[in-house]
Design a binder for these strands. Sequence first.
DNA 1: ATGATTGTATTCACCAATAAACATTTCCAT
DNA 2: ATGGAAATGTTTATTGGTGAATACAATCAT
Lengths: 143, 143
Amino acid sequence: MFIGEYNHTIDIKGRISIPSKFRDELGERFIVTKGMDNCLFIYPMEEWKVLENKLKQLPLTNKDARAFVRFFFAGATECELDNQGRIRIPNNLREHASLDKDTVLIGVATRIELWSQEQWQQYNNDANLSYDEIASKMAELGI
Amino acid sequence: MFIGEYNHTIDIKGRISIPSKFRDELGERFIVTKGMDNCLFIYPMEEWKVLENKLKQLPLTNKDARAFVRFFFAGATECELDNQGRIRIPNNLREHASLDKDTVLIGVATRIELWSQEQWQQYNNDANLSYDEIASKMAELGI
DNA sequence: ATGATTGTATTCACCAATAAACATTTCCAT
DNA sequence: ATGGAAATGTTTATTGGTGAATACAATCAT
């Protein structure tokens, strides 16, 4: 279970060190993909395999399906930690998340998310994310 | 499994180098064919066989099926990597995908796709790939 | 508080992948 | 056969990725 928030920096070669608390659970190899709301998702391998198999079943003849599958696979990359606990984020993924230097890594249960610091602050300041609203959403979900 | 996105260039003789990460899985010989949405598909031999079998089973009596089968087989060429990891793309295929110089190669699970850079950008900017739609697709798939 | 240990940031140097230019061979038309 | 064009092959340069070393900061134990 990934939890917590960390501020790290991306070096000039596009590498970022993964918080040491995340490393064990991540394992040797994992997948980084373009995520929603201008962030990146990091999936442990087992989670990704499930996704992969579902996506492979989608029919080639359906236009929407093709677009969806392209988005997912083209936007994915397999990573492994180097011996200092870092990964390299390919350029297209960095651009997707507007990642330049200051980066926030957050643990979100089964996955890790990467945000540019600005985007993360903005997202948090957004009025629609007030605690009251969160509370009421939780109520709706029966939590 | 092919994943990721790469920007390469086609030289004056119509050759392009295949990303090194794709080479192992592609093997010695493979099939390049006209794909949907103005791109080219590259299939490893085993995958092509699978596709071939599916296509052969389509009813000859169906007009659409005949067109589809012709499209796939007529547009197909067998290729192999030269000793620098490049392939030559026949002119008719290059025209089909409007490939000139700047080219994007994307991994899409079982195949590789070749796009002209402009076409790929345009395709991605297209409204039909909104994140909301992607999100709802994911929900459908239970992701 | 102090020193030891671990985690993160930064920089440098090396190696591999790709691009571009150039050379050679093959094939076709005359 | 011969010239020319296209295909194939080779060499060199450049870029970008990878690994290692160092420096700095934070945490922990005593």
